[in-house]
Amino acid sequence: MDSELLSFRDVSYAYPGGARLSARFPALRGHAIDSVTFSVATGSAVAILGANGSGKSTLLQLCNGLLDPDSGAISWQGSPMDRSRSGLTRVRSQVGLLFQDPDDQLFAGTLFQDVALGPLNQGLSRSEVRERVQDALEKTGLSEYADLPPHVFSHGMRKRAALAGVLAMRPKLLLLDEPTAGLDPESEERLLEIMTDLVDRGVSILVSTHDLDLARMWARDTVILDRGRLAAFGPSEQMMSNAELLEATGLRRRACRSSFGEDRMAAATGFGRVSRMGKP
């Protein structure tokens, strides 16, 4: 039986000033995360789906103690998350977070230095740090760029560089915030291989994404967030076959499904029915 790694019980979080904003603009809610309860077991592959602004990034930042919940409880490995300095250091060295914007986490002068940052903070020996950095760079296909500064990379390469920085920490739980956005198909495939390999080795992964295919093909379980609330949590297959749920939470287009939508799209693009292009 898989043991429980991380669990959320009735967790709510509001950004400072959120209440005032939501009073004027109801669409911007006071709570970015609102009474969320779910748990992640060791070795699980979970996708977090949700429309823009539904709270995916906020949820991930709560998972490694970067944000403090306003109410509710977060447990790590069976006990309440220790928020003392040493406790947080321990949690963060076991829970790796890949940010949505790679520039938020690339701050060293060279790629090698950047990837080495986490392992150095973990207090590892130089030889071990070097070994981990080389391994992470190899996995992400960036070995030959180790001595270059991050600003010469394209967005997709920065994303892979940021991922290398997290992989080098060898976390027990990996939080990936829209890792495939902006990656080319080859890099995406490589990333999926890395993710699958890690899960096989017992690492748990939580991926926030808008990509239903990723959730369907890779994730065993799926969390669906809707305006900060947990709309559903369960096996991916079950979630993905629930068209109503996907539409209600803004994860699937309504317009394109109906023939009316197809005709409207055809009128807009002038190409005839999109799905039948080349086959009149």
């Binding site: 060295s93 790796g96 060293a108 080495a116 940052l117 920490m169």
Partner: peptide
């Protein structure tokens, strides 16, 4: 955001150790 980025890599007191 950079502050959070540093914190997320196990540096709670904000010190950054570069290789």
């Amino acid at each position: 955001r950079i502050e959070r980025g540093i914190a997320s890599r196990a540096s709670v007191d904000g010190t950054v150790r570069f290789w």
